[in-house]
Computed example of a mutant assay.
Amino acid sequence: MAVTPRTNTPDRKTTNNEGRAITTVTVKRACNGCGQYLGDATEAEIWRAVDGLPAEDVRTECEHCRPLVELEAAGCRTWQLTPRSYSRVAHEIDQLKPWVFTKGYFQTVEEELQVVGLRIGTGETRVVAYFGDWIIRHPDGGFTVHKAPAIEETTRG
């Protein structure tokens, strides 16, 4: 599915009649799934925000999240694993039939043992999702992980 990329207007720096530096910015739209910037927000998107309406799902415009949308359309269940969603995601997966085992995945971070993700399943079929990753349960009951995108310093403001 080819998607036309959005316009991405750069910030414009000018000097006004009084000699003051003025920076004009264009509001950017971020992906609902991963938060990466996609380009300029449309006028309709701005008005939705002004009217207090939720942002429409634009994950199909995102190179990283488009595969997730396609998997969901094919009948897969997806969860994004974050420190905030950790307990809910683990509980939901633990309730699946046939029974699925989840457990925190720990690593040493800054000389301290910390939970950094979730281990799903046992044995050779076990997968590990780190915070930021998407967990995918396929219709056959198997699990895979869609890794979080690498965040570039220039991507975030």
Rank of each mutant, 00 (worst) to 15 (best):
M1W: 09
P5T: 01
R6G: 02
R12Q: 13
K13L: 15
K13A: 14
N17V: 08
N17R: 13
G19R: 03
R20K: 15
V27Y: 13
A30I: 08
G33W: 08
G35Y: 14
Y37I: 06
A41C: 08
A41K: 05
A41T: 03
A44E: 07
E45S: 00
I46M: 09
W47D: 02
W47R: 02
P54M: 04
P54N: 04
A55H: 09
V58T: 15
R59C: 02
C62Q: 04
H64Q: 02
A73K: 08
A74H: 06
C76P: 07
W79L: 05
Q80C: 10
L81S: 06
R88P: 12
A90M: 13
K97Q: 11
T102I: 10
T102D: 10
T102M: 14
T102A: 13
K103G: 12
K103R: 10
G104N: 01
Y105K: 12
F106R: 10
V109D: 06
G123D: 03
V127L: 08
V128F: 03
W134L: 10
R137S: 05
H138Q: 10
G141L: 07
G142H: 11
A148Y: 01
I151R: 14
I151E: 13
E152D: 04
E152C: 02
E153F: 09
T154S: 05
T155D: 13
